[in-house]
Design a binder for these strands. Structure first.
Lengths: 226, 226
DNA sequence: GTCTATATCACGATAGAC
DNA sequence: GTCTATCGTGATATAGAC
């Protein structure tokens, strides 16, 4: 696996809080905020329901803590790559490497993030104080890669494209793939998290991005039926 | 808007069933299966809760009916395009036109479909008989565009790529964009469903696909940090 | 077909013993 | 920090009058 080593080693003396976050991450990823009950989380973590409420005062607080942990892991690794001094195209490749590795190593994170991005939670705002940490992490992730794209376009390493649209495509291509689970594996005809499958996805996304962002005048597409 | 005219015209003599499906589609899209209550659907449709259960025997049945309607609308329009005799590249452009138009004209459909694809419902199988219609529609959508991609590669119109991976990228780029709602509009800095914004998304996706599928040998990407 | 009532159950959250 | 017991609410779903 990649650089960071603070992961799931020695799980034995893990605190209850970490265990809760671990199982809650998997459950929220699979069935969403409304689809998971605190009783279910408690049982999966090996506790009673009241003990769970001792660690997290409310379901929203637990959900936001899970989200912040997932976003934090991703943000830290991406920020490390983005702070290196590399040519934009090379840096974008590294960004895709580390992003895809994170999704592949933590299978729940892609689904959880995809939900968080399109599900318009009512608690990612100013209402819940814990939501601010989530908002900061999300902004850091998005602004980091947006800055890279803009820099690359200014330097002529990428064609002049719409940064938001490229971002949307990048998010969709990376996040959806690893969130697609069963259906994705049915399409691929095999596992999606094996070393080979992860390598294949990286190659595929890099090929698309290399060609799609190549610094040549974009060919004006055909007609428009609407 | 586009060709089909069976849309929301003369809503006055719409039956209760259609009204229910309409409001349920919007609600399920926004908050998912578990996040929506039958009482809420009934009230939004202007009925009592029991009247709703008269039209749909269970919540699962209602959800599957909504899904089938959304998938059916998409499948019908895509199939019409795919059955035309056009060159693969041109046909893929038309496929993207009609797909994006459908998502843009029915704003709930993208979110609903995205959920259906990655949420691994337990009722999309053999358990519920209504789920088979949903499965058929989904298979038709996926197989249709997969056939087009394979045909294009065989004819040399597209580079030899992994059809499943291209499919995943295509789904992610089209579906996520129109499902991204608030966040997407925040990134774009404006509305995402306006005629201009829809045109811009079509152009962006076509540019990426034209370049990403261009029939030249794919350049072998750089290193791999994992 | 639509309604009022009701049955049954699980939910989030709290109280308080240990 | 974990437990049992409980509160109040809202969930899906049904019964039966009109």
């Amino acid at each position: 696996m990649a650089g960071t080593a603070d992961d799931a080693t020695d799980r034995r003396d893990t605190s209850s809080r970490d265990k809760i976050l671990e199982v809650a991450e998997a459950l929220f990823a699979r069935r969403g905020f409304a689809g998971v009950g605190m009783r279910e989380v408690a049982e999966a973590a090996g506790l009673g329901k009241s003990s769970l409420f001792h660690h997290f005062r409310s379901k929203v607080q637990l959900y936001l803590a899970v989200l912040e942990r997932v976003l934090g892991r991703l943000d830290d690794r991406q920020t490390a790559v983005l702070s290196q001094s590399l040519a934009p195209a090379e840096k974008l490749d590294r960004w895709m490497d580390v992003t895809i590795d994170t999704f592949a190593e933590q299978p729940a994170s892609a689904r959880l993030l995809l939900r968080a991005l399109f599900e318009e939670d009512e608690f990612d705002g100013t209402d819940w104080p814990e939501g601010q940490a989530v908002d900061r992490r999300l902004a850091s992730v998005l602004e980091g890669v947006a800055r890279l794209l803009n820099e690359g376009m200014k330097k002529g390493a990428f064609r002049a494209a719409s940064t938001p649209h490229v971002l949307q495509t990048l998010i969709g291509a990376a996040l959806y793939h690893f969130a697609s689970g069963e259906l994705g594996e049915a399409l691929l005809g095999g596992p999606m998290l094996s070393a080979d499958a992860v390598r294949a996805r990286k190659a595929e996304m890099k090929a698309f991005m290399h060609h799609g962002l190549a610094p040549r005048p974009a060919q004006s597409a055909g007609g428009d039926e609407s």
